[in-house]
Amino acid sequence: MKHLALMATTALTLSAAPLWAQEAEETQVIGISIPAATHGWAGGMNYFAQAAVERLEEVYPQLDFVLATASDPSKQVSDIEDMVATRGIDALVVLPFESEPLTGPVKAVADQGVWITVVDRGLSEPGIEDLYVAGDNPGFGRVSGEYMVSALPEGGKVVALRGIPTTIDNERVAGFEEAIAGSGIEVLGMEHGNWNRDDAFTVMQDFLSKHSQIDAVWASDDDMAVGVLAAIEAAGRSDVKFVLGGAGMKEMIARTRDSDPMVPANVTYPPSMIASAIEITALGLVSDAPVAGRFIIGSELVTPENAEQYYFPDSPF
């Protein structure tokens, strides 16, 4: 687990609180609640969660795992309530669908003494979770912006596709804009492609109709990059030099590795962070290792030189 190693050396804050005074022989249950695989990144995240559960069940026979996927926040709340009521979970690993609606229910679980690990999306109220594992959204945008600055001449014209309107999207865009500020790069337009291939295709077609000169596209997500690339190819436009996606879909990483000029780079936002979170939580349950705190997984720039180490052939994403 590359990322686990990475994290263990980054931001480990020691927790002074003693862990559970548990008898190690008793079976303990870890509940995992994540959004359903409704887009590529979430699909990858689901894959890594399941893989982690399978592996950890073998490593730790004294642990039981309950995995539930939810397609909306209220379903997720029900899932969590069910886990507490019927499985008596000892720890909860949750990737909140949305921050606000999940804060109260998760707090209620925490108040019952259950260990809480929050992944990726923070709750609205600080201090509820024992462990926080997340990607770095402003950093994701910043790394993307810095790459644009380095890859484009001054005065380069860029269009950007945004995700589903959420805090994550806002943080990324803010980071991006901060990074390109003062560089002379001109953002011609930003529209929501909703992290969806078809929507991105449509939006890009219209960008191409609207602007006769586009130097590069910040697709901000590899699913959207697929749609963007198809639209550019169909329009036969040679002015677009490259498309910068994000999150490290394996097909895109492979194109970068193979030096495809249209896909020269990528920015990571690893869906495997869920596996790390589950693993650390499991470790905390079975041992006395101090694992509480915040783990922020930085977004890395993927280039043809280092692409190989970000390529996971078995992942669906």
Partner: peptide, 10 residues
């Protein structure tokens, strides 16, 4: 043939 892919968001 447009994007050559299908997913749960199609």
């Amino acid at each position: 043939p447009r994007l050559g892919s299908a997913s749960s968001s199609t």
